[in-house]
């Protein structure tokens, strides 16, 4: 059939569903093996975190769109959860190849890493449906455009700078992202770099401070500039 805007939008959603249909909504054997290789096994924390953030997401989704949309929120999060585990596995395989190590205990026990990765997965799912909203007008999608980035940062209480850290690796290891989705994630990066990362409570200021202190230990101090 001829390609129309409606068909293109539906194809993008269908493609996401097809990709994630074969993915599991729980850690795969390969992931469990990575978890077991850790000095501190992160499995329990990972499962609890996903459950907690899933409840937060579903509650906020229904709050924004109405209780009649609670089931849709459940479906959206379920897709995001599958994407999260799929991308995590690919990231770890890529890191194993690059670093020749199998113990990722430190990374896998960092809360912000997981919350950012799950947040990015949610954003991909929401943007896939949201971008089709103006075309398909299925009833919920119009309202869902209000739930686009940076909505996920607010509901997951996630710092923009931490979210920024996962985007590039996410794009590198997930081959099924469409051109439009890569552009969308790049747009999120730009918003973070241009404004969101510079908000008062951003961790970027502590990093700059630490960086200056390290420089100060190895180099002659420079005159203070305005």
């Amino acid at each position: 059939p001829p390609q129309t805007p409606v068909r293109a939008a539906m194809d993008v959603i269908q493609q996401l569903k097809m990709t994630l249909h074969s993915a599991s909504d729980r850690p795969s054997e390969a992931l469990i093996s990575y978890f077991n290789n850790c000095t501190v096994n992160p499995t329990e924390d990972i499962i609890k975190r996903v459950e907690y953030l899933g409840n937060v997401f579903k509650e906020k989704f229904a709050e924004a769109l109405g209780m009649e949309c609670a089931e849709i929120g459940y479906q959206r999060f379920n897709l995001a959860k599958r994407l999260y585990f799929r991308v995590m596995e690919s990231m770890l395989k890529s890191e194993e190849k690059r670093l020749s190590v199998q113990n990722f205990s430190k990374l896998l026990n960092i809360d912000t890493f997981h919350t950012s990765l799950l947040g990015c997965s949610v954003e991909v799912v929401m943007a896939t449906y949201g971008s089709s909203g103006s075309i398909l007008q299925t009833g919920t999608t119009h309202a869902e455009t209000n739930l686009s980035f940076p909505w996920i940062l607010h509901i997951f209480k996630l710092k923009a700078f931490d979210f920024y850290k996962v985007i590039e690796s996410f794009i590198k290891v997930e081959p099924c992202l469409t051109r439009e989705m890569v552009k969308h994630l790049e747009g999120c990066e730009h918003r973070i770099m241009e404004s969101l990362a510079w908000q008062t409570d951003s961790p970027i200021f502590e990093l700059i401070k630490q960086s200056r202190e390290q420089e100060g230990q190895t180099e002659q101090p420079e005159p203070t500039s305005s």
Binding site: R98, K106, E168, S169, K172, E186
Partner: peptide
């Protein structure tokens, strides 16, 4: 990856970004 601009160096990855190197 289309026109996406990668900022990480060849020898950098997610581990370095979360300070795990």
């Amino acid at each position: 990856f289309h026109d996406y601009h990668f900022g990480l160096e060849e020898n950098e990855g997610i581990s370095e970004l979360f300070d795990c190197d």
